[in-house]
Amino acid sequence: MTPDPTLDRAGVLRRLGNDHALMEEIFALFLEVTPPLLLRLNRAVESADLAAVVVLAHEIKGAAANVGALELQRQAKLLDASARQRLLPSVREHHELLRLELQRVCEAISAPFSPEK
C-alpha cells in the first residue's frame, strides 16, 4: 500500500513497534512544537534571514520525519536547500508550500483516525 504522503500513520506505527499511545504522544508533541516554529520561520522569511531559515527548516524537517509527514519533510528539505543557496524567490515559494502542507498535517493529526484511509 502506498503511504499517505501527508501523514503515514501506518509507517509511524511500524517504526514505533505498534505502540499507539507513543504515536499519539508524538503527534501531540508535533502539534505543540510546530506552530511556534512556523511563526519563527515566517519572520525569518519576511526579514530574509536565510541562516535562520536553514535552522528552522531543519527543525521542521526533523519533526515531520518523526510523525511520518513525508511531503512536509520533502518541502522542508527543499526550503533548506533554497536557503543554503541563497535563492530568495525560491525560499518564498517553498515557504508558502511548506506552510500549506503543515496545515494539512495538523488537520490530519487532529482528524478522527479511520484505519481504512
Binding site: E25, I26, L29, F30, V33, E59, G62, A63, N66, V67
Partner: peptide, 11 residues
C-alpha cells in the same frame, strides 16, 4: 536538540 526525537528516544 529536537524535542520530539528526544522524547522518542527516552521512551
Amino acid at each position: 536538540d529536537d524535542l520530539i526525537s528526544r522524547r522518542l528516544l527516552q521512551k
